[in-house]
Computed example of a mutant assay.
Amino acid sequence: MTDLVRNFAKGCRGLVPTMDAALVPWSEEEQHDNWERVASVLFMTLVSEPCEYAAVGEDGLSLISTVPYGWDVPPVDCNAYLAATAGHDVPMRVVRLSSSQQPFDQAIITSSSGTERISLSDASFKFVFAPANGDGRVVEHVDLTL
């Protein structure tokens, strides 16, 4: 999982020159809906879909709905999310990537106790699936070689 998230961050960083050339703001101070749409699709393709498949297999995909990238408040029908641990006992939901020393080197995480930023290099990531039937699971590794 951690490799998937770091690859997603690398993909976002790789788009910075293209976004700059197209005058599409990507930095936190300036980003708008244009960047969020791009980041959402990358997140879905590089993180959510592989995690959903690892969690439930092809036959269970209709049972899983992952919180979309960038949503501060998750939709009520979502039952899965990307989580991170970095100095926390309990994984906290990842909202979006943010920037500190370089573009997209941090994640914004949230829980009932608040929101904070963590370094991607210090974090480990998990995918949490909590269906209504109580048969939840946590995915810590996704094998992309299948």
Rank of each mutant, 00 (worst) to 15 (best):
G14P: 01
S99A: 10
A9H: 01
V56Y: 01
R96P: 04
R117P: 02
N133K: 12
A55W: 00
K126C: 13
C12L: 15
L82E: 02
A55D: 09
E28H: 10
Q101M: 12
G60D: 05
G60R: 05
S40R: 04
A22S: 07
H141I: 15
S100M: 03
L46S: 08
S40Q: 06
G70M: 02
A83L: 09
T145L: 14
P91Y: 01
T145I: 09
V94T: 03
F8E: 00
R13Y: 04
M1E: 00
L15C: 01
A80I: 08
P103Y: 02
P103I: 04
A22T: 01
T2H: 07
D89H: 08
V138N: 13
T18Y: 12
D122I: 06
Q102V: 11
A123M: 00
W71T: 13
N7C: 06
D20Y: 00
S99L: 06
V5W: 06
T110F: 05
V94A: 00
A83V: 10
T115A: 10
W35L: 04
V67W: 04
E58F: 07
R93Y: 08
L144S: 12
L15E: 03
T110G: 11
V139C: 14
V67R: 09
C78F: 00
T115C: 13
V138C: 14
L144Y: 03
V95K: 09
D105T: 01
D3C: 10
H88T: 12
M92Q: 13
S100N: 09
D122S: 14
D72A: 14
C12M: 15
D3S: 15
F43M: 02
V5Y: 08
A54T: 11
D77Y: 07
S62E: 15
G114H: 10
P25L: 04
M44A: 14
L61W: 02
E116I: 03
S111C: 13
L120I: 03
F8P: 00
W71R: 14
V56Q: 05
S62G: 15
E140F: 15
I118D: 07
P103A: 06
G11Y: 07
Q101C: 08
L120Y: 03
A123Y: 00
S119F: 00
F127I: 03
G11K: 11
D143V: 14
A132F: 13
G134H: 06
R96A: 07
I109F: 01
G57K: 04
L120E: 06
D33N: 13
E52H: 03
S65C: 12
P75L: 05
